[in-house]
Amino acid sequence: MLLLIATISAAMAAPVSVGAGYYGDFVSHPGGYLSASWQVAEAGSFSARVGGELGAYHHERNHTGAFARGHMGLRATGDSGLFFEPRFVLGYVHTWVDGDEYWVVDEDTLELRGKYEGGSPNLGYGMGLGFGWDPKGDDQGLTWLMRAEATGRAPYNGFALNQFALLAGVEWTPGGGR
């Protein structure tokens, strides 16, 4: 609890970085995300970051997903401004199958559900590695980044569905920083 309070306090004191970009479920099923993150600790070229993301994607004839998730990562930035950032994500994913859904209520009753009616709640999780470039190397202004994630959602057929995602976008920090 103390660690959580300390992290939140550090986050509140740090400048927020906001981001947006492409979210590709299994790389090619398109979507997008908005993010906010805070640098909560720094040691040399390393900085710890926490934050959250809202996003959605669409897999044609399979499902549409919308997510809200938190993330925690460690960014290592070189002198050139190039950085890499392993991170964990955890949150909520709601999925709707794509297309009409006929629901067998009982032996004699069949209901047609609307496209975004109901859906399925899921725990979403992931572990990713991001690469990026902070052109000024000062953690201010625009930063370009790309993340590859091993991600998944549960429950799914008695277990979980594990797969991949690709995120590519920009992050903007309005000033301050390290």
Binding site: R61, N62, E101, Y102
Partner: peptide
């Protein structure tokens, strides 16, 4: 190129399974 785009596509849900 996108595959399996023709025809009609829907799902049937019964007893917990959502079957395409």
């Amino acid at each position: 190129g996108p595959m399996m785009t023709e025809g009609d596509y829907f799902h049937v849900e019964r007893a917990g399974a959502i079957m395409p």
